[in-house]
Design a protein around this nucleic acid. Structure first.
Length: 210
DNA sequence: GACCAGGCACATC
DNA sequence: GATGTGCATGGT
């Protein structure tokens, strides 16, 4: 398994090249994007981030002062905007209360402990927590998403009801714990998923992994 | 018009 | 613990 997982990575990297994730100007923007992208097209997240930037709200202190109604309005393109506004607020409160909104402070916390704390914030589930850890804070944590599950299910690496922790353990136990590798690997899986492993329109016959 | 997208919380059994 | 449902915009 060890070698197979790495071989898949190399194949994907050769085929697609570097993905340069996460597309954002700052770790804080990554954190917001991680919540905004929940079950939503990335293009819509970009619109929402653009709205926030236009209003010059892309800082913890400024965003925390915005009313939930206005926030919901600004992030409307991402869908679920009322829920996501609430989730962003929960996260901002958590970030301010525990780390004074400092990336340096949140970064210095022991990863497993920080992961548990993130998961206790309303609106932050496993994928969002891990996206924040890996893509905002450069922690070597593998992110599992719907594409990853679908791809590895179709290639018979996991069964249909495999749980998040088990799939994550598969990657983390059989690959070098390296944040650059985990970053690129997950981004490549999303790219592969978008182009070759669609839900109802699988192009598996021409999948570069075959 | 149907289906899908870089999920999560909550209710119910 | 498993399964179902609400949340909602924009692209194909």
């Amino acid at each position: 398994m060890n070698r197979r997982l790495y071989t898949i990575y190399k194949k994907l990297y050769c085929y697609f090249g570097p993905q340069n994730w996460w597309p954002a100007d700052s770790p804080f923007e990554v954190m917001l994007g991680a919540i905004l992208t929940q079950n939503t097209n990335w293009h819509n997240v970009e619109r929402a981030i653009h709205n926030l930037k236009k209003e010059k709200l892309l800082s913890v202190s400024k965003l925390a002062k915005v009313s939930q109604g206005k926030l919901a309005c600004l992030i409307k393109p991402t869908g679920y905007y009322n829920i996501k506004a609430k989730r962003l607020n929960s996260f901002l409160k958590f970030f301010l209360k525990n780390y004074q909104g400092s990336i340096k402070k949140i970064s210095s916390e022991h990863t497993p402990q920080l992961r548990r704390k993130l998961l206790s914030v309303n609106g932050i589930g496993q994928e969002t927590a891990d996206s924040i850890l890996l893509y905002a804070l450069n922690k070597p944590v593998f992110v599992i998403d719907a594409y990853t599950k679908r791809i590895f299910y179709r290639h018979h690496f996991i069964d249909g009801n495999a749980e998040y922790e088990n799939i994550q353990a598969l990657f983390m136990q059989h690959l070098k714990k390296n944040n650059k590798l985990f970053n690129e690997y997950h981004a490549l899986l999303v790219r592969l998923g978008k182009e070759f492993c669609l839900k109802n329109n699988p192009r598996c016959s021409i999948c570069p992994l075959k």
